[in-house]
Each structure stands twice: as C-alpha cells, then as structure tokens.
C-alpha cells in the first residue's frame, strides 16, 4: 500500500513540476500575432492590388486562414498558388479567372506635364509610391511601385501609364535551354559522328 501512495505522490509531483515548466514556457515564449496568417502573407506578392477581392494582401491572408480559396491572387499566379498549397497542404488549383489573369509586371509612370496636381493618385496608392503635393506635379517612385493599377482609375485627366518593366543588363538572365527530343537525325548529333 505504501508503495502505491509513494507512486501517486511521485506522479503528482512530476505533474506539478512539468505543469509549472509548461506554464512558464507559455508565457515566456508567447508568440505575438497569428503565425499562420503571417506565413501566408509572406508568400503573397504584396502588390496590394485588391484583385483578390480584399483590400490588400494581409486581409486576403487572413481570409485564406479562415478557409477562402487560394487561387484568387493574379499577380502571384501559379507560383504563389503552388507555394500556398505547399504551406497549407492543399491541392494546387488553377487561377480563378474571375479575379483576373496573370500578366507581365508593369510599373506606373505619370505623364508629368499633364498632371494637374489633384493628389487623387496619392490617396489611392496602397504603398505610398507616389510623390507630390496639391497643385504640384506628381511622380511615381518606380523602385517602390508594385504595379497594382489602383492609381489609374482616380486620375481625372488620365495621365498615368502602366508600362512593362524593362529588362536591363543587370536583370537579364539566360533562358532555360530549349528542350529537344531525345533522338533526332540532325547531321551534327554525336551518334552520327560516331558511326562515321
């Protein structure tokens, strides 16, 4: 009988000790914010364009965490869908056409001599990429523009153009070699010269 009490006492003691450790750890290593939302947000392209139907990438990340479909972000396209599917252990589905289609990346340019300085585009830009003041010429900080198109609509004189991002010698890179079929009868193939 005494052994039984001893065993119970030891187990109870252990339970208290581990409980204390766990309790301490829960307070000491508390994670701020919602880790899964942040993880999803870090995979979204941060264009902040609203094409997914949410006012920005973070809200869409929140919605995905709540079970919304992962195929609503056109700027991210296939790559983002694949990454999200990997993270959430879901199936990668094709992009939802209702939210737009994947397009080449563009950047906004204001035709500066036509700008009337109405500040409307500044208010629309989700990432503060436009510089200007009332009745002064406005300009886009091209390095900060995400190409979200949101500044086009409010401009009363339609002086904003979306132009494709130019390839420079710094951003240019090699393409993947063309995939050729495994056998061919081109005269230069090695098999031919071996026979010759």
């Amino acid at each position: 009988m005494q052994t039984l009490y001893l065993a119970i006492a030891i187990l109870a003691l252990l339970a208290i000790v581990f409980g204390a450790i766990l309790g301490f750890a829960a307070i000491r290593f508390k994670v701020d914010g919602d880790p899964i939302v942040d993880q999803i947000d870090s995979l979204l392209p941060q264009t902040q364009c609203g094409q997914c139907g949410h006012p920005g990438c973070k809200p869409y990340a929140q919605a995905i965490a709540n079970g919304e479909a992962i195929n609503r972000c056109p700027p991210g396209g296939e790559t983002t869908i694949k990454a999200l599917a990997d993270l959430l252990d879901l199936e990668a589905i094709p992009l939802d056409a209702e939210h737009g289609s994947e397009a080449i990346r563009t950047i906004a340019y204001i035709r500066e001599d036509e700008c009337i300085g109405c500040t409307k585009c500044i208010q629309a830009c989700p990432v503060d990429a436009i510089l200007g003041a009332a009745k002064q010429m406005h300009t886009v900080i091209v390095d900060e523009c995400t190409g979200c198109d949101l500044c086009l609509e409010p401009c009363p004189v339609d002086c904003i153009d979306m132009l494709p991002v130019e390839v420079t010698s710094a951003s240019w890179h090699w393409q993947q070699p063309a995939q050729l079929i495994a056998t061919s009868n081109l005269p230069y193939s090695r098999g031919e010269s071996d026979h010759a």
Binding site: G56, C57, K58, V127, S171, H173, Q176
Partner: peptide
Amino acid sequence: RYAKGRLKTINSEAQLAEASRLRF
C-alpha cells in the same frame, strides 16, 4: 546560368515584396 538568374530575380522580388508589405 538560368537557375542563377532566376534565383536572383526571385530574391530581388522577395525583397521588393517585403518592402511593399512594410510600407503598406
């Protein structure tokens, strides 16, 4: 060379996205 180029673009895009996220 192709893979290196793509990695470079991916990294710079990630940097841009992070900066946009902060500004947003």
